[in-house]
Design a binder for these strands. Structure first.
Length: 261
DNA sequence: ATGGTCGCGTAGCGA
């Protein structure tokens, strides 16, 4: 079995205590991290490698940044989302890993937030989603187990937000955002959450402001998107909500799938 | 309508 998780940690250096605690409790085989807010120079490689993980990152100073951790060796690494050579933002890394039964491909995705919308930041978000769709279409042609994991900054449906009416003008929930997300799914991807749970009110993010956590005013924006070969092999899906209660928590919580790979 | 909280890095931006 392979446990594959995604977590937007909102700074790896500030979050190391929470991350190491969670790694030892949940013992994921593969972890996709977002918003590491670190470069190759200041990422804590030694501490994470000491816990038994291979580590690859796409870093950036102060903002963004993604990483993939794996107990198994990486057979292939791709850094950056194809489709725009001028894109400087660190938001995509992809790896191929072999499990007990099957090789699989996993991506750590930090999709742009896009606020305020409309505007240049929203245009960048929509362009990025088009590039992701194009790249995913190519990956699906391999007909292999594929897990596109990350912070999508997309609330798929009304059931995934505490107060849909308050989010109508937010880049995370606007109709065009959700339409592009559905187009991505339409390529032949399945949300692990929808296959295993699908219930309303299962959130992965609560804002630091306004007592959002205490009032359970959350949204579900961290997703595992699966190719048919991955969807056929998922046996468990979990949202590790308890981590939002810890000391200096991230505003996101980990999401983890267990696969018979 | 405003302000409310974090993280980075030490002002103000991004979320």
């Amino acid at each position: 079995m392979m446990k594959i998780a995604t977590w937007n940690v909102n700074s790896i250096r500030t979050r190391m205590h929470a991350v190491t605690k969670w790694l030892s409790e949940a013992s994921p085989d593969v972890v996709c991290l977002q918003e590491i807010k670190a470069t190759e120079e200041n990422f804590p490689f030694m501490e994470i490698e000491a816990l038994g993980y291979n580590v690859e990152i796409v870093g950036q100073k102060s903002y963004n940044g993604v990483a993939v951790l794996s107990k198994r060796p990486f057979e292939e690494i791709r850094k950056g989302l194809p489709g725009d050579d001028n894109d400087e933002q660190a938001r995509y890394i992809e790896a191929v890993i072999t499990g007990d039964r099957l090789p699989f491909r996993v991506a750590s995705i930090y999709l742009p937030n896009g606020n305020p919308a409309p505007g240049p930041k929203y245009d960048y978000k929509l362009d990025w989603m088009d590039r992701l769709e194009s790249h995913a279409r190519g990956l699906l042609k391999f007909e292999e187990a594929l897990v596109l994991a990350g912070d999508y900054n997309v609330i798929p449906e009304a059931k995934d937000v505490y107060a849909p009416s308050e989010w109508l003008t937010e880049a995370l929930y606007m109709p065009q955002t959700r339409a592009k997300f559905r187009t991505l799914l339409g390529l032949g991807l399945t949300e692990a959450f929808e296959q295993m749970d699908g219930r309303a009110g299962q959130y992965t993010f609560w804002d630091y402001q306004r007592g959002a956590w205490q009032n359970n005013e959350g949204i579900r924006i961290d997703h595992l998107l699966l190719s048919p070969q991955a969807a056929d092999n998922i046996v468990k899906f979990e949202i590790h909500k308890h981590t939002r209660d810890g000391i200096k928590p991230s505003d996101h919580v980990p999401v983890m799938g267990t696969f018979d790979f």
